[in-house]
Design a protein around this nucleic acid. Sequence first.
DNA 1: CGCGAATTTGAGTATCATCAATTAGGGTGG
DNA 2: CCACCCTAATTGATGATACTCAAATTCGCG
Lengths: 246, 246
Amino acid sequence: MAPASARPIPVAAIKTQCSSCHLKDICLPCGLTGPEVERLDGLKFARRKIAAGEVLYREGDRFQFIYAVRSGTFKSSLMLADGREQVSGLHIAGELMGLDGLAAGKYASSATALEDTEVCAIPYAHLNELAQQSPNLQMVVARLMSREIVREHSLMMLLGSMNAEERLAAFLLNLSQRMKARGYSPCEFHLRMSRAEIGSYLGMKLETVSRTFSAFQQQRLLEVDKKHIRITDLEGLTRMFETRVH
Amino acid sequence: MAPASARPIPVAAIKTQCSSCHLKDICLPCGLTGPEVERLDGLKFARRKIAAGEVLYREGDRFQFIYAVRSGTFKSSLMLADGREQVSGLHIAGELMGLDGLAAGKYASSATALEDTEVCAIPYAHLNELAQQSPNLQMVVARLMSREIVREHSLMMLLGSMNAEERLAAFLLNLSQRMKARGYSPCEFHLRMSRAEIGSYLGMKLETVSRTFSAFQQQRLLEVDKKHIRITDLEGLTRMFETRVH
DNA sequence: CGCGAATTTGAGTATCATCAATTAGGGTGG
DNA sequence: CCACCCTAATTGATGATACTCAAATTCGCG
């Protein structure tokens, strides 16, 4: 019988190095100089494939790894007291997940693959050791966490002060920018979340999400075909914000 | 003429030590053992008094200090594109502010004193040096940041999925718990925010905040006299959540 | 091809925002 | 010390936005 200490983790511990990763400019090593990235290679971690619909970690699981998304998309979510799901994040390639677990030693949210994915499972303790020898690496980790705080800030703004159209526009534009930063097309992408998940994330009902998509389409801002989105009028979509006279 | 490098900071650099602070169990040293707290005493920082209405730091200011609230209350807020203010946090004694500045080297929000206050201005660079010698201290700092992430998470939940009564109840109960943890009465306190500020924070209009207070009062959950709040039925207020059948 | 799930769309409604008027307080100056 | 003013808060009336319930349609998968 396997040790009960934790859920099965690195199935095949493929050794992976940051310095040769195609995501090195936007992922963990972001901001580090060449030699420092090589020092990061001292960090041994495993890659893992997670199939669509599978859960990478669950709310309450012991915090042990930070995960970097290599490919694919994840959502993070929490269970509400009444059993409903609240989506709290969307993570695409090059982004990190799990930082929220540090506070209490347990993940504060669950991460679910929205398509077939691959992640790097970075042992936090090991990363920490390394960071102790490198002030810059330490700074990078701290900055990543701070970035997460800022990210949530802006989502709060969104939830606190925008109407349905503004929320969806903000969501799409944010995603568009992140896609662009990763070399993908900023104007055409596949939404991996369902209408219900988008709604949960943005604080509106799935019907409203659907209606808002339709409205954008009629305004010729988007072409929507189920989960496939094409932004046809980026400026128009951006104007959704400034048009907040109310 | 004073050097233009930064805004005037420590007026009188009173040397302050964590080990003898009455807030040591809930503030920065929280979770550290006795000897480690003493090591924290190597950290020299200044206390500063901030008068009601004064701004401690502004959105965009260069990030240099983390601030610990010694006494009084702060709000943090951002300016929206249209010039309105969005309140993003409330900070009471023993809590830290400014962590959001690490991401970009500039504060992502402004901090304003809601009454006469006193803070410790902790130079982040110095804290960092110290942390490099003490894994535990490093862990504490990381945990503080993660805690911030979790805090925002829960506010997002609130904004995303609660109605007006639930939001205000959640806000009051959260504040109540924090007061309690600091040895203050959990059931009677002075709200330092105006109705408009509370509304901004909770994503509702000031009129709705006012009406909801009145409703709670009629339900005999609270006694409200302007900014003075007395919770008369803590369980009832808590039930506001579970009663989310809709 | 057929079933179940996801999405779209419609109609009616509840909640909260807006507009507006009134009251209460806190601070200032006569 | 009181009158006055400006701001904050309360309360009411009305309306817009987004939710609920419901039905029709499409999609994806076996």
